[in-house]
Design a binder for these strands. Structure first.
Lengths: 160, 160
DNA sequence: ACGCTCATTGACGTTTGCGTTAATGGTAAA
DNA sequence: TTTACCATTAACGCAAACGTCAATGAGCGT
């Protein structure tokens, strides 16, 4: 019970332009993320052009979620995704040279990071649920007031 | 069936220092929000010192929520709270001089704004729930892997 | 070989959301 | 009144997260 799916093509094959299109960010942003350590330096073709893989695209989408949903800064996100690189190390060196204690400590790190994200999300979810309830209450109240005013209008100027 | 509670003291009575303490933002921030139209110009005492009301404090807290939970910019928040000022107008001029159609159109505006916030929250909530599920899946998978590795460790070096 | 598009690095510009003086004046207790 | 804090406006500063050139080179069809 191992390989769920053949390793999806994660060979670097797409150029920065298409990577930008696929992720919805600009080329500048991709280079910027690389500069800040959010994306690993991609492989290059002979001329020096960057070649991104699907994994890179996935990561950018993850970054965007962490930004928009959790409101994390790039610095914070960097800390999180750094630990995600362990994932690729695990994949590359899977069942091979690393000692078992080493692999255990890495996966513990991953669990820790994932748990942190989960905690943040849980907090936000709770706060947002509360806010949503509040808004629904206000909506109800406003609609009631509106109905009342509509009633009063008919008392003054009867049905047109 | 009218007044739920005697109108809580919304007479302007607290100075900027305490308003800052109560809201958790700085004095600078309060003046900045005023500058940007997020807070109505407060009343002043003879010397020119600002006097805030509880309503102002509430509004700042609302602004903070819209920032941290929804990630809105101050410009976006301004649009939203501007329509909230209708609330105070409604309160101040309640059951008095405004024509009924006028009051109806104002409350419709409020409903619209509240509905917008509700929509944004609903979207975010859905996206976050999804992300949370995903994280929980990863956690489970990682913990399973960890357990498996722990098992392998014992095969190599039996119980200490 | 030519032209066209796309990429690369580097540097400077921009917007947001405040922080931080600086210089001045109001208010309240002793 | 003097001291000790407030507060006021105005102006400059700053970090984050990119945008926007500018000059140069790569790749590719004809």
């Amino acid at each position: 019970m191992a390989e769920k799916r053949a390793r999806t093509q994660d060979e670097p094959c797409i150029q920065i332009g298409e990577a930008a299109d696929r992720t919805g960010v600009t080329q500048r942003t991709l280079r910027f993320y690389e500069e800040r350590g959010l994306l690993k330096p991609p492989t290059r073709m002979e001329g020096g052009f960057r070649l991104y893989s699907q994994d890179d695209v996935d990561r950018v989408e993850q970054i965007k979620r962490l930004q928009s949903l959790l409101g994390l800064t790039l610095a914070e996100i960097k800390d999180m995704v750094e630990a995600e690189e362990v994932k690729e190390e695990l994949r590359a060196t899977a069942r091979s040279d690393l000692s078992i204690p080493e692999r255990i400590s890495r996966i513990k790190k991953r669990i820790e990071v994932t748990q942190r994200q989960h905690d943040i999300i849980s907090h936000k979810l709770a706060a947002m649920e509360e806010m949503k309830q509040d808004l629904e209450g206000r909506l109800e109240h406003n609609r009631a007031t509106l109905a009342e005013l509509d009633g009063q209008r008919e008392e003054v100027a009867p049905a047109p």
